[in-house]
Write a protein that binds this DNA or RNA. Sequence first.
DNA 1: ATTATACCCCGGTTCTCCACTGGGGTTTGC
DNA 2: GCAAACCCCAGTGGAGAACCGGGGTATAAT
Lengths: 144, 144
Amino acid sequence: MDLSAKSEYALLALLELSPHYASGEPLQIRQIASQQSIPDRYLEQLLATLRRAGLVKSQRGARGGYILARDPWKITLYDVVSCIEGFEPQADPPQVSDTPEALVIQDVWGEVRQAAEGVLQRYTLQDLVEKRNAKQQIDIMYYI
Amino acid sequence: MDLSAKSEYALLALLELSPHYASGEPLQIRQIASQQSIPDRYLEQLLATLRRAGLVKSQRGARGGYILARDPWKITLYDVVSCIEGFEPQADPPQVSDTPEALVIQDVWGEVRQAAEGVLQRYTLQDLVEKRNAKQQIDIMYYI
DNA sequence: ATTATACCCCGGTTCTCCACTGGGGTTTGC
DNA sequence: GCAAACCCCAGTGGAGAACCGGGGTATAAT
């Protein structure tokens, strides 16, 4: 029922990358990690997964780093979470039993899952960036 | 993101109890467990939790067992899952970090959770019983 | 060319939690 | 009384999450 810290880390990283997509300048793991207080060696693994899924591109060597593979409007939270959580390929959800009652429950489980995925599909990275900006705007208003 | 086997077991048990609510006759752990292929000593714990949550009542001693505490129309899947999964009392979802980005993500996490809970709140035990009956009706049609 | 920087790959470790098991008790109908 | 059933509490095995580390490889800058 809960989304893991793993997914949250991945999203945080991509949110850091989003504003730098336009300029094309790569961001290093260390930068992202310290900015969002993520263990850097762990973040490295997550970024590798995101790269294999085609969500980010990497530039190796000195002054390298990561950039978003496409526009932050074109990446949904579902894209991120599904590839991190790895729940794409398995067409066989582990069935506990197969009585008629169990089958009905599986159906409901599917509906719950779809409802959750629906929310994630409705948000893009850019949506979150703007949500954050809006929040900070409010903070500034209160400050003045 | 996934609902545990624990919740599925609990639901299966309550679905077994539902048709017996009208008669008031208790059902024993063993019966339910063998009917739904649930490890009986494990089911015992789950039923204890459900009892403490006020969803079932127990009759001790010889010829005892469990009965639903109220009408199967009046018990939602949310009632069951929330008490089994134990995600009611904790008002403090473990925050990984507290940057503005993290807060925005927490908001989305909340929305996902709400969407999932919404589905569960829309179903009652009796809904599932009837869904199962409908499915079996279809099976019979095919059989003829 | 050399060197420093940063990604890349692969493996191990620790910790927590789920699913399950077991050993006793206590209540109740016959 | 005694057997059937619930009750309580404690422990165990395995899996996965969250990290950590070592050593490699590509690349930019000098």
